[in-house]
């Protein structure tokens, strides 16, 4: 089991003025599984992801484990990808040096260069290694962030609306690249998004948060076979069934 959450409760806001956003969330993510977290904006998707990432401590009584070990601080083997690539990447470092950042102090210089080159090759940015992030398009910068996340060969990727700021065409490209990379490296993914189609297309399961404070409103299994393709998969009966189910949970039957 990759992530295990038992009756997780979490607050946001300053001490004294806080608000409980998550209550009694129990969720298991198996190794190699692709799980999306959905829900209306402000429902606590990002909070749940931050709890899994060890960036936010859940309230007392909550249990969060990654590969059997309790999460207290960012766990080894988990990488996070942010929506805001401008802040997540360091503009004063080259693309290669950005990808190298998590490896510094862990690998020798030649090992690092080799790993960086291999990872940039995986995301198709080998020829942009010496550019700085601001010189790249949004889609490319998000690829750099993905490369940096994958460079440390993580067991799990946590992604917070990673394609939310990209145009539709770039987004669909990156979805397929992500699926290919994840299949190749058998990485576990927890993916926060507000796009139902994207969630269903990518995931083995779509977990919908709802209520205030939020709990798990539905856990929808997506039965589409892999590898998935933008046209075939989106036409299939399984895709449409899962899509309608998620839609119903979020909006009600209307």
């Amino acid at each position: 089991m990759s992530f295990e959450c038992r009756s997780v409760r979490a607050d946001v806001g300053a001490v004294g003025a806080n608000r409980t956003v998550l209550d009694d969330v129990s969720l298991d993510v198996a190794s190699g599984e692709f799980v999306s977290i959905m829900g209306r904006s402000g429902v606590g998707k990002t909070t749940l992801l931050r709890v899994l990432a060890g960036l936010q401590e859940p309230s007392a009584g909550s249990t969060v484990r990654f590969e059997g070990r309790p999460v207290d601080g960012p766990p080894d083997g988990v990488s996070l990808v942010f929506q805001d690539y401008t802040s997540a990447l360091l503009p004063w470092r080259t693309v290669a040096a950005n990808v190298e950042l998590p490896l510094e102090g862990h690998l020798s210089k030649p090992e690092r260069s080799e790993r960086v080159a291999a990872t940039l090759e995986m995301v198709g940015l080998a020829d942009r290694a010496n550019d700085r992030p601001p010189q790249l398009s949004g889609g490319m910068q998000q690829r750099v962030q993905l490369a940096r996340a994958l460079a440390s060969r993580p067991a799990a990727l946590l992604m917070d609306e990673p394609f939310g700021a990209l145009d539709a065409l770039t987004k669909s490209d990156l979805e397929d690249e992500l699926l290919a990379l994840v299949a190749e490296t058998s990485t576990t993914v927890v993916f926060v998004t507000h796009d139902i189609d994207e969630a269903v297309y990518l995931s083995d399961r779509v977990v919908v948060l709802g209520g205030e404070p939020a709990g798990i409103a539905a856990d929808v299994v997506v039965d589409c076979p892999r590898p998935r393709t933008q046209i075939r998969t989106r036409e299939s009966a399984e895709f449409l069934a899962a899509r309608s189910r998620v839609h119903e949970v979020i909006f009600g039957t209307r």
Binding site: G54, L55, P74, L80, S87, A88, L90, P102, E104, G105
Partner: peptide, 24 residues
């Protein structure tokens, strides 16, 4: 986000200051 990034990459305190805070 930049500070969360440094934490989630589990950069040491020294590396966080030297590679993220100081250049920023």
């Amino acid at each position: 986000v930049r500070l969360d990034m440094a934490r989630s990459l589990r950069l040491s305190r020294r590396r966080t200051i030297g590679s993220v805070l100081l250049p920023a």
